[in-house]
């Protein structure tokens, strides 16, 4: 079997949206794919040494909430200070209870399986981020770095 290639672009930096790129990347790597993930804009939050990902009910009517709150709780109520922290805490408890892997765990599976994690240099410059804020295992690159790999990848996804 010749090696298949998966190219992902990860653009979102919330706890919920951290899952799709890491689940797909870790699974594909286990299946024998050569995997590259390009992290740009908010996606770079997924590469921080210390992950501090949150989930927000704000502007997210599809999010299931306790006690059917999404049905009767006023949308403006989701802007109350502490709401994000509370929802994040509940989500993390649910993740643990259901046996869903943590983002740290999935990220480690990717690193162990030699998934190439590429941080967007432009985003780092734009937001005045520091290389030291991110895990050592990443490379930095730009659009052409992505295409060098994605150009002949079997699967390409933008998340």
């Amino acid at each position: 079997m010749s090696e298949k290639k998966l190219a992902l672009i990860a653009t979102k930096g919330t706890l919920d949206w951290a899952y799709p790129p890491f689940i797909l990347a870790s699974t594909a790597a286990a299946l024998g794919y050569n995997v590259n993930v390009f992290f740009t804009f908010y996606g770079l939050q997924l590469l921080r040494k210390k992950l501090d990902l949150k989930v927000s009910p704000l502007g997210n009517p599809g999010m299931p909430m306790p006690m059917g709150m999404n049905k009767w709780f006023p949308v403006l109520g989701t802007t109350i200070p502490g709401m994000e922290t509370a929802m994040t805490k509940m989500m993390k408890q649910k993740i643990k209870k259901k046996g869903v892997a943590s983002i740290e765990e999935l990220r480690n599976l990717c690193i162990e399986a030699d998934v190439k994690l590429i941080g967007c240099q432009m985003t780092i410059d734009l937001f005045d981020m520091k290389r030291e804020d991110f895990i050592d295992e990443i490379d930095l690159g730009g659009a052409s770095t992505y295409f060098e790999f994605a150009g002949d990848a079997d699967v390409q996804l933008f998340i």
Binding site: I23, S26, T27, A30, L31, K98, G99, V100, A101, L106
Partner: peptide, 14 residues
Amino acid sequence: RGWDCPLPVIHTIR
């Protein structure tokens, strides 16, 4: 047991 997607498949492959 106790694991959810994608852990059962990943560890099966391993």
